[in-house]
Design a protein around this nucleic acid. Structure first.
Length: 463
RNA sequence: GGCGCUGUAGCAAAGUGGUAAUGCAGUGGACUGCAACUCCGCCAUCGUCGGUUCGAUUCCGACCAGCGCCUCCA
């Protein structure tokens, strides 16, 4: 049983072989906490959570780290904008992030490093880069330009290996003015000076703060090691973020590779358009969770392959919800069973093939249908397999009764009212007063409640 | 200009050199007092044009149409 993953570095699917099967390491870039995260931020979290689950099935010890960037100019700007302490902002939004991630059924990573708690490690790395001739401190005549430490891109011959970019062939500075203190247009900031009213830490280059790319490199080294098995993130991070991470880590660690496998998820669009501030079409996870169960969002994300682009729409969400309803309907009618993952099953094989979650999900239906057709012990066996598959996908984790009946924002009837009406209908049915019974059912339907009669009695669910 | 991606049924989405999984929606039927649930069935020739091949949606080429990155970004 081998796991194949698409490696962005080689641009092909490769058999995954960890350096140490006793300690598999993976890192995914987490959020910068200055706002609620949007659905696009949720995709890598869900996708790589699923990878984490698969890896845990294959290896006894998987160390998964996902960082929190809690120092960044965007956060500083927000702080100034709201006249709130930066810590208040980062605390609020990191907590909101964890809540969102929990709603999406993501497992808690083994390590959740915060950038601000790794300043010494970052300073060490900058110093190492300076010592090795890969970084330089600016010494501009312009006072405000002093105190920067930049990575010297020309000092690294194979810079651009991940993004396959040759910076000399890019339109350097075409869209952004190149800062005058750079020796080379592609050089990037490792350490930047802070003014008195900006957060900062003392360093050999004066009081300042780390550049964004540096954080990940330093935290990876500390928590996972100089070279890790898998580094993951969104496609847009390939350049410059991941390219620069490679440059920093590789040059600071005497040429050692930062990661053997690089994995990147595709984008989520909204109604065919990229999410952007100018279009005002961000879909915040927090807002979506007011309308949809977290599992619906997770289902939608897993219903297409992680590397392809995905288009988000109301129709997609509603259809996903209906689908999950039918699966929950199946569980609802059966006794709970112990989940058993079937490693030889088609679903797990699909997951081992570069995380083919759409195929794995289709197996969920195949099993569901088989359960509905089977009886007795056989039914139990298939149900166990279905539950095992659901677990690795992080789906069907709720109590089915609750799934159908839990209160929602737009409810017109309480659960108690529903029960009373069902009783009334039951009474009418026994008296063969079907007109009355249908009238009650219509009343419930108008209130957003659908009934399902069965031998065991009447079940209800919110539509 | 550099690097790269996509185009499969109303919607969503896999996949393969030998005539296309799956879900939603739709539809015919069974079940049901009527429904709902469930079950059985139906519903596509894979952007266009060429080439390679016994045979291509799947390989190659051209074209058309979308799109991403090259600046912060999942």
């Amino acid at each position: 049983m081998e796991l194949k993953l698409y490696n962005s570095l080689t641009r092909q699917k490769q058999v995954f072989e960890p350096m140490d099967p006793q300690r598999v390491t993976m890192y995914a870039c987490g959020p910068t906490v200055y706002n609620y995260v949007h659905i696009g931020n949720a995709r890598p979290a869900v996708v790589f959570d699923t990878l984490y689950r698969v890896l845990k099935c294959l290896y006894s010890n998987v160390v998964y780290a996902r960082n929190i960037t809690d120092i960044d100019d965007k956060i500083i700007n927000k702080s100034n904008e709201l006249s709130q302490d930066i810590n208040v902002i980062t605390k609020k939004y990191s907590e909101a992030y964890f809540e969102d991630m929990q709603a999406l059924n993501t497992l808690t990573p083994d390590k959740i490093p915060y950038a601000t708690q790794h300043i010494p490690e970052m300073i060490d790395m900058v110093q190492a880069l300076i010592d090795r001739g890969h970084a330089y401190e600016t010494d501009s005549e312009n006072l405000s330009d002093r105190g920067h430490v930049l990575f010297s891109v020309p000092s690294m011959p194979n810079y651009g290996q991940l993004s396959k970019r040759n910076l000399d062939e890019q339109e350097a500075g075409a869209r952004v003015e190149v800062a005058g203190y750079k020796q080379y247009a592609g050089d990037f900031v490792l350490w930047k000076p802070s003014t008195d009213n900006e957060p900062g830490w003392d360093s050999p280059w004066g009081r300042g703060r780390p550049g964004w790319h540096l954080e990940c490199s330093a935290m990876i080294k500390k928590h996972l090691g100089e070279t890790i098995d898998i580094h993951a993130g969104g496609q847009d991070l390939i350049f410059p973020h991941h390219e620069n991470e490679i440059a920093q880590s590789c040059c600071a660690n005497d040429g050692k590779a930062l990661a053997n496998f690089w994995m990147h998820n595709g984008f989520i669009n909204i109604n065919g358009e990229k999410m952007s501030k100018s279009l005002g079409n961000f879909r915040l996870v927090n807002d979506l969770l007011q309308q949809y169960p977290g599992e619906v969002l997770r289902y939608v994300i897993l219903s297409s392959h992680y590397r392809s682009e995905q288009n988000f729409s109301k129709e997609l969400l509603d259809s996903a919800w209906r689908t999950l309803d039918s699966l929950y309907g199946l569980i609802r009618g059966l006794e709970p069973v112990e989940a058993v993952l079937e490693p030889s099953g088609a679903a797990f094989k699909a997951l081992l093939d570069d995380l083919n979650t759409p195929v794995a999900i289709s197996e969920l239906y195949r099993l569901a249908k088989a359960v509905n057709q089977a009886k007795g012990d056989e039914q139990q066996d298939i149900m166990r397999e279905l539950a095992g598959l659901a677990d690795i996908l992080g789906l069907l984790q709720q109590d089915p009764e609750q799934w159908f009946t839990q209160a929602r924002a737009d409810d017109q009837l309480t659960a108690e009212q529903v029960e009373v009406l069902i009783q009334a209908r039951q009474q009418a049915k026994q008296e063969k007063d079907f007109a009355k019974a249908d009238q009650v059912r219509q009343q419930l339907l108008d209130g957003g409640v659908i009934l399902e009669d069965s031998r065991e009695g009447t079940k209800w669910r919110r539509s």
